[in-house]
Amino acid sequence: MANDDVLLQLSGVTRTFGGLTAVDGVDLTVRRGQIYSIIGPNGAGKTTVFNLITGIYRPTSGDVTLDGNSIVGYTPDRVLRAGVARTFQNIRLFNNMTVLENVLVGQHVRFPGDLISIVFHLPNYNRAERAARARAIELLGFFGPSMVALQDEYALNLSYADRRRVEVARALGSNPKLLMLDEPTAGMNDAETAEAVGYIQALRRDFGVTILLIEHKLQVTMGLSDRIAVLDYGKKIAEGLPDEIRTNELVIEAYLGRKAAI
């Protein structure tokens, strides 16, 4: 495949915290339009990889490129501007803001609004604000009319599954090239999980985003992913198609223990 197919590339990314190596020489290549999953046991360094991509942590060594340009050393808001948006394993909505406001914050970088045009109510800002609100409602509409109806509810008061949906809508607000979902089905029952799988596929179809996923539930990963990387103790121990991962001895041993079968 041509190299401009590559959206995100991690080359030899390592991150140490004191004496602990949380991520150890990880290479990942995520191609445009893929749903790419990172799996691995607890503490394998999956969320740390997310934090290294989004600029929360800086790699101790190695490189992270987006569209061929290194984003190492970018602050998180610059990474977002460059086209990477994410959700969180432990949902981090702005609880004292409404659903609509949360999604509007997600659009922060995508509409103009400097202090002068806000204070003097310049028409360009008012237009942008109206357009942003319309867009926010459209994004909520992706999850159906019931989410649109919740637009003025405080995020704090939402059900768990709805909070996950709002996080995704908020992340979509920035029109990302790469959408990173950190355990999007954590804490969900089977029905909710099935629905989440459905909307993750729809996200790629409707918004044309590439998706990088951390997921614990194997049935979710296997069904969704074009490609899977397996982390264990900060190292990538396997990478491949779902079927290859399913039968990989190293993965079965590290991730499931000897007795379990996938």
Partner: peptide, 20 residues
């Protein structure tokens, strides 16, 4: 927009930064 950014930062600066 800037007011929302202020409130978002007050509640969770890191999440606000990750939203741009």
């Amino acid at each position: 927009k800037l007011g929302r950014a202020m409130r978002a930062t007050a509640q969770d600066p890191e999440a606000a930064q990750l939203m741009g």
